[in-house]
């Protein structure tokens, strides 16, 4: 089964174009399940999934939870606050304890880059990276790709600019890998203090001015600007950020073509994106949210058959 994902989903850097396409192709028919009266298929009946969230997250956790439930998996949520995770237990101990309870899959969100891989190397269960530090957020990358593909059909030659705090963004990294592998042209635009010093080596175009990005792009993926970046001295103020880098209606009106607007959320309206852009005719931000559930269902489905324990149990019972 070489075409499938393997044991874990850790990042889009580690997938081939064929694997990415397969996830997207699988996600398309799964969208229909969420439109049914009974939004559920029995595919993952009996599988136990733990959502292990060391960082606060509403949107991603809920999206995973819906995906798991619509596939009939049993889910347990572990959030860092109030659990042993916040009492100094190490990640490796947490992982071993979960494994001892015979779980099948772990969805992990963690503040340290590499945490998902760390876990994946130490437990037999499938591990899905739901965001690790500033490394990758592969399911967000996949849902962005699906949203773009829904509109463009084929991403080859399409121009996508990722705008904002690329330096601290796992969404940006997953998007860069995914878009590049599917043949899109990728650019980034943001203050240089929020771009990695080695940005050129990702083989992307760099725009210093948002006006240039808008002139060039077919789609903008606008990253959330964390308020902490101002305190850390990366930018002087949110006000100035909006004036120089904000995606506003006035700027978009000067674009030579219609530009799709994506945002991974949650949005800072009036900072990186203006409300009339977020709610405007070219915004696909809510499509991203809908696609998020389908993409995560597809990932769960494609990883499930690669669980050696489940497979062995199934054979033993046959």
């Amino acid at each position: 089964m070489s075409g499938l994902l393997g044991k874990d989903l850790l990042g889009l850097e580690y997938l081939t174009a064929e694997q990415i396409t397969q996830v997207l192709d699988t996600a398309v028919p799964l969208k229909e399940i969420s439109e049914r009266a009974i939004k559920k298929v029995p595919t993952l009946r009996g599988a136990t999934v733990v959502n292990l969230f060391f960082e606060a997250s509403t949107r991603t956790r809920i999206s995973f939870e819906f995906a798991e439930k619509r596939m009939s998996a049993d889910t347990v949520n572990v959030a860092s606050a109030g659990s042993s995770v916040s009492k100094g237990e190490t990640l490796v101990d947490t992982a071993r304890n979960l494994e001892a309870m015979r779980i099948d899959m772990v969805v992990i969100r963690h503040g340290s880059s590499g945490a998902a891989r760390f876990l994946a190397e130490r437990i037999e269960s499938n591990v899905i990276n739901a965001g690790d530090g500033t490394h990758e957020h592969p399911t967000q990358g996949l849902l962005d790709l699906l949203t773009l593909r829904d509109r463009f059909g084929d991403l080859r030659g399409k121009r996508v600019c990722i705008c904002g705090d690329v330096l601290h963004s796992r969404v940006a990294r997953s998007n860069i890998w995914g878009l590049t592998k599917l043949g899109a042209e990728v650019a980034v635009c943001g203050p240089r203090s929020l771009l990695p010093n080695a940005m050129e080596e990702f083989n992307v175009t760099i725009f210093d001015r948002i006006e240039q990005a808008i002139e060039w792009a077919d789609a903008l993926n606008i990253l959330r600007l964390q308020l902490e970046r101002m305190q850390a001295g990366h930018i002087p103020s949110l006000r100035e950020y909006n004036r120089v880098f904000g995606v506003t209606r006035e700027r978009l009106e000067r674009a030579p073509r219609d530009i799709l607007i994506l945002h991974p959320g949650p949005m800072n309206r009036g900072v990186e994106i203006d409300s009339d852009v977020a709610d405007g005719p070219h915004s696909v931000i809510l499509d991203q949210v809908t696609n998020g559930v389908a993409v995560r269902m597809a990932v769960l489905y494609l990883l499930a058959g690669h669980n050696p324990k489940l497979a062995a149990a199934a054979k033993g019972g046959a």
Binding site: G3, T26, V41, T43, A311
Partner: peptide, 16 residues
């Protein structure tokens, strides 16, 4: 998605 042999055969890559 309603098959009973997902774990022994593995997922069918193309869901219709």
């Amino acid at each position: 998605l309603y098959r009973d042999d997902l774990q022994s055969v593995g997922p069918i890559p193309l869901v219709g």
